[in-house]
Design a protein around this nucleic acid. Sequence first.
DNA 1: AAGAAGTCCTGGGCGC
DNA 2: TGCGCCCAGGACTTCT
Length: 287
Amino acid sequence: MPELPEVEVIRQELAPLLAGRRFTAVDARLKKMVLTPLGRFRRAVVGSRITAVRRRAKLLLLDLSSGWTVAVHLKMTGQLVWVPERGTLRGGGHPFHGALDGLPNRYSHIVFTVTGGQLIFNDLRQFGFLKLVRSDALERWFAEQKIGPEPLERFPFATFNERLKRRPRSRVKPTLLDQRFVAGLGNIYADEALFEARVRPTRLVRTLTVSERRALWQAIPAVLRRSLRHRGTTFRHFRRPDGQPGAMLRLLRVYGREGQPCRRCGTPIQKTRLAQRGTHACPNCQR
DNA sequence: AAGAAGTCCTGGGCGC
DNA sequence: TGCGCCCAGGACTTCT
């Protein structure tokens, strides 16, 4: 469930906490979470300094002084929590399934000891992963996966429209969710962007008018930036590195609002299933 | 080539 | 009170 804004919030908040610190130990309690052979992983990480904390798509990237980068994918329930040697975690009093109680706990699958604290990878559903990639081979790795353009960086309409033209027969929402089409959207912000652009999620790409394409192209970064300002959406599991939730949930316009009045026209928001995903839309203002 | 379905996994919420 | 079932969905794989 962490999508681009949530991963970016983690990056922004983790970067000053980790910059220049050194890994002194790695405790891989659940080995399958590390996609790299553990001996190699440990040799690259332990003793290395963290030189940068970056993000590409939904991947968080920890650049190390050893020339390696630890790529972290949180998938749906992953969390990266910073526990300082002295200090406390604030849960924020949000409804939560206990995954931050008493860290490290049964969901803490990887525990990094860092000078000054611990960096803990929690993941209730164990879908997330860590992978070691040579820093100078990262771009090649992204290219192999065909990860699409970053919507908050250079993202010209012409490129967006060209990409739409390549998949005329696809429905628009599955297209937005495809990381090869555009990087970083997940179920929440795909629904939010379609609402913002007043486009039905089931529309075939080839039927979108130029003004609808433009509206969608504008809506994507607008929705992501708005979430970023509010430090992301905490639906269940998303936590910032200090354990606090994001504040975007109550500002969402369609996601999670089935039956509630559309904020534009008052029509009850409908929830349907599209490509095996819960899909929220206003049946009146999305055409 | 697109789309449906299966896969990983746990806990919450529901009906009975 | 408790059991069985479905749902949540990121991204990959397999089948149609």
